[in-house]
Nucleic acid binder design. Sequence first.
DNA 1: GAATTTTTGATGTACGTAAATCAAAAATGC
DNA 2: GCATTTTTGATTTACGTACATCAAAAATTC
Lengths: 345, 345
Amino acid sequence: MRPTVHDIAAEAGVSLATVDRVLNNRPGVRSVTRDKVERAIATLGYVRDVAAANLAKSRSYPLIFILPEGENAFMRGLEAEIEAAIARSAVERTEITILSVPAFDAAALAAALDDARRRTPAGVAVVAVEAPEVVAAVGRLREDGIAVVTLVSDLTGSERDHFAGVDNIAAGRTAGSLMRRFLGGRDGPVAIVAGSMLVRDHRDRLEGFSTAVNEGAAKRHLLPVVEGHDDPTEVETLVRDLLAAHADLAGIYSLGAGNRGLIAALEEAGRQSEICAIAHELTPYSRAALVSGTIDALLNQDAGHEVRSAIRVLKARADGLSMIEAQERIRIDIFLKDNLPVEPA
Amino acid sequence: MRPTVHDIAAEAGVSLATVDRVLNNRPGVRSVTRDKVERAIATLGYVRDVAAANLAKSRSYPLIFILPEGENAFMRGLEAEIEAAIARSAVERTEITILSVPAFDAAALAAALDDARRRTPAGVAVVAVEAPEVVAAVGRLREDGIAVVTLVSDLTGSERDHFAGVDNIAAGRTAGSLMRRFLGGRDGPVAIVAGSMLVRDHRDRLEGFSTAVNEGAAKRHLLPVVEGHDDPTEVETLVRDLLAAHADLAGIYSLGAGNRGLIAALEEAGRQSEICAIAHELTPYSRAALVSGTIDALLNQDAGHEVRSAIRVLKARADGLSMIEAQERIRIDIFLKDNLPVEPA
DNA sequence: GAATTTTTGATGTACGTAAATCAAAAATGC
DNA sequence: GCATTTTTGATTTACGTACATCAAAAATTC
């Protein structure tokens, strides 16, 4: 039988009230007595029953998620996962609010973070845009003792408690390595389409890709990066131009969103089979393109895992508890058409 | 504020005792009354507070894990993850016991399952070996109302509640597809080393690999499958023989364990760079081989996720609750040297 | 050593549910 | 319409912790 506060009281030879004072470090306990109690805790191996404690406290966790607006399929998928978490909130004692902000807009994001702060939540999860005012806003949250987790895109130099997302340098490296091996000895340049160099994850992916694609002997020519702002229409135009300008194009790496545009342009040109396309994020569109062969490989981060992980970490941080490190590491999924998970994805 | 049993009683115009009778379906309630209560539950959107319920019941979950003995690095890693779960058992209200059985021994496994049954646990997780007596033993557990989850290797035709493992056909397909693309136009046969055709996961991987490696135009010659029984020494001998017999060997797919033997044989022959090697499971040995280039790609299943998933499912089943399907899908990780997680693995 | 402050004990209530008992009320059989 | 059975209500205790209050004891100050 697992020891309780009563057992500690008996073991230490003090009253329940004193044990309580030590456990919840309330004032009014001599250090001698405190030591006695702490020794009893150690010898009995007492662990606080979190469920019972939360019940007694009728604890709940008000959390705020901040994400970009727009028709970015990955972000909408993320939002759906947050909605799913909201549906579970009764069981998980969470009260989740979603705030939407314009994409790639540092000022708006900073304002949203300050808005969140005014609501005094237990924690905030945010898809970051890298800018000094955002770093400052995160700092203010942390000063108020509010836990902060960056989601999907990290924030350099900030005081965030944790980053719930993938190692994007490694993701880029993986894409580069696959591109290199899939192309084999084939000639021709490789194009890179990004969303915006303002977000950390895109910069990181680019860095990783550039180094890995040119590892080893043969050097591959990389065309200058173009930015599509995660917008399908814009991306389609960009890719169409790239295809027109480079008849010998060997590969395309799309490291942001807006893959519908990429797919449309490739299929319109009828050059799906000759061009090796590697993209990010599994969506209904990209999934279909992977099955049909327009896209050769997809790198993916599981939005559901990221959301659930962010919630776990925020709750743990709010209680000052530690987390299972390995459980919170978000992995980079590599999808070929052979290992696609069952629909819908 | 979330509704409680008291709110249901008030809403339905019955007493607390009656609500309790309905919720825990105890006898002695007229169906008219039962309906009234159920309607109140529905309109209020009541969800039982599992933490409070478990507290009141002082519930705990005695679970038994059954795994093969031997120096199979993956299985030892799995065991380590179970030990980690045992360390968390105070918090998670579990009481986990590990039973070890000889590998690939159906009779011993069936005996262990019956042993487990005698201990009347809430659930059993088992690394299955496919055999009628094992299926029967699992059936007996289920008859006693004990939840059963197969771990890593599934059991065809059994009554198990859930399989906590990867889709091994898809894993094999993925390996085959990578082999095909990595080899490109290169000639030469491909060898396949399995552990034993007695376990479902190995058979499935073989099936997937065989179809995918030969997709498309060029046909690749596959050498007959050899069985190394997941034993490093045995595997080393087998691979050494293969290398000697086939000077033009283009690739090796190792779909079981014992990769230390594979690595040793390849490095001894000095043919690491010319042979494309794809193997399963990230261990310290295989990790080093991936970094050095002896192995080209590793497919992996995260043992920690499998163990935690198995525990979640067993607990949920024991309580008759449902699970988050997506959360319990174990993914096939593809590791290149570019996307290796940080040490230790 | 008396007055004061600090520390400790004793006790009760609460959180939301489970489970039991006994009495009261309602439904049923004949 | 009486006896019997079934259903319902009222109430209590318990799970392990949090938190508050008031009294008692011990330590401190001067």
